[in-house]
Amino acid sequence: MNAPTEQPARLTVATCSLAGCFGCHMSFLDVDERIVELAQLVTFDRSPLTDVKHCSERVDVGLIEGGLCNVENVEVLREFRASCRYLVAVGSCAITGGVPAVRNKFTLESCLREAYIDAPGIDNPHIPCDPEIPLLLNKVRPIHEVVRVDYVLPGCPPPAEAFWELLTALIAGREPELAYEHRRFD
């Protein structure tokens, strides 16, 4: 007799890392046992956590950590952006370039020389140029300089509570609101 009630469509969530340290992903996992609850509310798509390499056709929320330091980062970001309804810049590197952007004070050539030619104890000094290795960008860039960003989670890393607030808000169809203590630049 009971007609099956229509379940709201489960949100699809993808995650991705560019020039970052995976610290943001580790912080996401600090939601601890709530990951079980989350897995019942959303479907995980492309992510280092699922080892799926490319997004499905339709992803609702894409969380991306890390900035842009090479051409592969740019390609991955553009593909990810095209797949995601809402793109979330996660952490200092995605939002500002972060620690990798410290090299922006120096020319790319001087960075490569320091690492591969001039540093002490180097055998066969030469700058790697294998086509398998993505070319480095002249400057490390935050992702908003290349694609449109819908939401941000500041922090290095953002606390697990910030991830939880963002995802539960989007699941509930409301705007995320980060508490003062969960809105940090460090």
């Binding site: 810049a89 939002i95 500002t96 370039g97 952007a101 004070k105 908003h144 500041p154 809105r183």
Partner: peptide
Amino acid sequence: MEDTSLPHRFPS
């Protein structure tokens, strides 16, 4: 403020 939203200058 949660992000910078403008292009960074990265001055020397």
